[in-house]
Design a binder for these strands. Structure first.
Length: 166
DNA sequence: AGTAGGATCGCG
DNA sequence: GCGATCCTACTG
């Protein structure tokens, strides 16, 4: 079943697990993709040095402070669009990064395959944006390991906030 | 206006 | 393990 915007107004861990029990569905033009989400990462709160929100609300990270259920899509390395779903309540910065789905591994390759760009930034999950999630199975076993590409994050490098479906 | 650095990728 | 790559956000 499709998860509506309200579903995401809760703790990011809960959302992360739910996403691993879901398909990401992308509808663009007359094309439709539905892929099993198999890898996510959490960026949450004011203390997480890996999070864009660590230094406070500004610039691109504004979206992370919105109420759960909107998309946070930004560009890294000038090339790759990275897809996150904002979670939790208003004014509390939190998001789940979608790293892999179906056969696509790596957040940049996934967004490329699904035609996801920064145009989707701040849009709500749902039919209208052409991007939503459908919970359709039990997650099974999940491995929790440190996140990727955050060498600058000091002690937060070690936090097991990357969830991989086995 | 200039610049440093990056929630990656792909090749070794 | 490391270099390419180029946009963005921050600085001055």
């Amino acid at each position: 079943m499709r998860m509506n915007k309200d579903f995401f107004k809760k703790d990011s861990r809960e959302v992360a697990f739910a996403l691993l029990e879901s398909n990401i569905v992308r509808e663009v033009g007359n094309e439709m993709f539905s892929l099993e989400v198999n890898e996510v990462e959490i960026y949450e709160g004011f203390k997480d040095k890996a999070s864009h929100a660590y230094k406070g609300k500004r610039g691109r990270n504004k979206v992370m402070f919105e109420e759960g259920g909107v998309l946070y899509v930004y560009l890294v390395y000038g090339i790759h669009s990275i897809l996150n779903v904002v979670t939790d309540k208003k004014d509390y910065p939190a998001a789940v990064l979608i790293r892999g789905a179906g056969k696509f591994s790596g957040p940049g390759r996934l967004t490329k395959a699904l035609g996801i760009s920064t145009l989707l930034n701040r849009k709500e999950v749902g039919k209208e944006s052409g991007l939503w999630f459908e919970r359709n199975r039990r997650a099974g076993k999940i491995r929790m390991v440190p996140r990727v590409g955050i060498h600058y994050a000091e002690e937060w490098k070690e936090a097991s906030l990357r969830f991989i479906k086995e």
